[in-house]
Design a binder for these strands. Structure first.
Ligand SMILES: [Zn+2]
Ligand SMILES: [Zn+2]
Ligand SMILES: [Zn+2]
Ligand SMILES: [Zn+2]
Ligand SMILES: [Zn+2]
Ligand SMILES: [Zn+2]
Length: 335
DNA sequence: GAGTTTGAAACT
DNA sequence: CAGTTTCAAACTC
């Protein structure tokens, strides 16, 4: 299964649901569907352990159940947004002083609530790190484990020696290991609040739109510190958002046309220049033609007078190119 | 709940 | 520094 997503929509927080819908075109490709959308690709990465056999690509964002091409479905990241789940407790927010695990007091179920602000502290489930490595959130936050589900936990007062040694090790590896990862919301008056992940994320496959991403988890947009691929966790002006959505719609329409006009819809149509390394195989003729057609449409729109000014047109084309580049970069990454 | 995916942290 | 492995959480079904 190979999926190409050409979705330019970005910041889910303000994404209008009506515009955030994604048209997917389902096309038989080697007995498996190809969902073409814009902008996100999941390469057939043979995951850990598994050897050569390329694993089927899967769609990250949404379950796309579209056969007609008309139907539209919200990507999962939008859905989760709409579900308004209980907000994930912000990491990196100032944490109240850890009360030493005093067994004589406070065995209440509220024990894992911060004394000051009732911020729930999620218990860890570490098994192999002894809660003495940064893998453990408790340890990483400079807290003792308390009412956690960890095994062989050394992150407690009974093992202060081990714990201190571990802290030292971490600090010499990274002196900022226990500093907040999110830059302070320094916004005295000169607006432009800058809350940045100080190190930035390195997400490759989540679009920075899932909690795997530390930026997204902290509910901040990715920044120049990040080295993520295919990032959609970026702040966008309304105009830009609209532009992206238009672009997405146009591309998907073009592609849909190409797909349906294919003579034998059951026949996979590989790239003509089959010189391609397998990574780029999903860019088949349909995708290429749709791409060309889309750009042609943009460039023709001037004469038709139906489009906007030169600047907008240029912006659209640039955006399109950027998405294309992302797709290719992403596909080159692995496989 | 079991199994998979993910990217930071650790390691080489 | 880059490539790989380990790890626990996020996620999916
Ligand atoms: Zn732990
Ligand atoms: Zn813990
Ligand atoms: Zn622990
Ligand atoms: Zn990210
Ligand atoms: Zn980021
Ligand atoms: Zn990002």
């Amino acid at each position: 299964m190979q999926y190409i997503k050409f979705v330019t929509a970005t910041n889910s927080e303000t994404l209008p649901t009506s515009a955030s819908t994604i048209t997917t075109v389902k096309t038989p490709v080697q007995a498996s569907p190809t969902n073409i959308v814009l902008s996100e690709i999941k390469p057939a990465a043979a995951s850990q352990g598994t050897a050569i056999a390329p694993k089927p690509l899967k769609n990250i964002a949404a379950k796309t159940t579209v056969t007609t091409g008309q139907v539209v479905m919200l990507p999962s990241y939008v859905q989760t947004q709409l579900n308004t789940k209980v907000p994930i407790p912000m990491r990196h927010t100032p944490v109240a002083k850890q009360v030493s695990p005093d067994t004589s007091v406070n065995i209440t179920p509220e024990a894992n609530l911060e004394s000051n602000g009732m911020r729930p502290r999620k218990p860890c489930n570490c098994t192999k790190s002894q809660c003495l490595k940064l893998y453990c959130d408790c340890f990483a936050n400079g807290e003792f484990c308390y009412m956690c589900n960890c095994m062989n936990c050394y992150n407690n007062l009974d093992n202060e020696d081990h714990r201190q040694r571990a802290i030292k090790t971490c600090l010499e590896r990274n002196p900022n290991a226990f500093r907040p990862k999110i830059g302070k919301a320094k916004d005295v008056s000169g607006d432009s609040s800058v809350r940045k992940h100080t190190k930035g994320c390195n997400c490759k496959r989540s679009g920075c739109l899932k909690n795997y991403c530390e930026c997204y988890e902290a509910k901040i947009a990715c920044s120049n510190n990040c080295k993520c691929v295919g990032c959609r966790n970026i702040e966008d002006s309304m105009e830009k958002k609209g532009m992206r959505n238009n672009l997405e719609d146009g591309f998907n329409q073009q592609l849909q046309g190409k797909m349906t006009q294919s003579k034998d819809p059951l026949q996979f149509r590989p790239r003509r220049t089959s010189n391609s390394r397998q990574a780029i195989n999903f860019i088949n003729d349909d995708v290429i033609e749709a791409t060309s057609q889309c750009m042609l449409t943009i460039s023709n729109s001037e004469e038709a007078g139906m489009q906007d000014d030169e600047v907008t047109k240029r912006q659209i084309i640039e955006e399109f190119g950027r998405c294309l580049k992302e797709i290719i970069d992403y596909s080159m990454l692995h496989n």
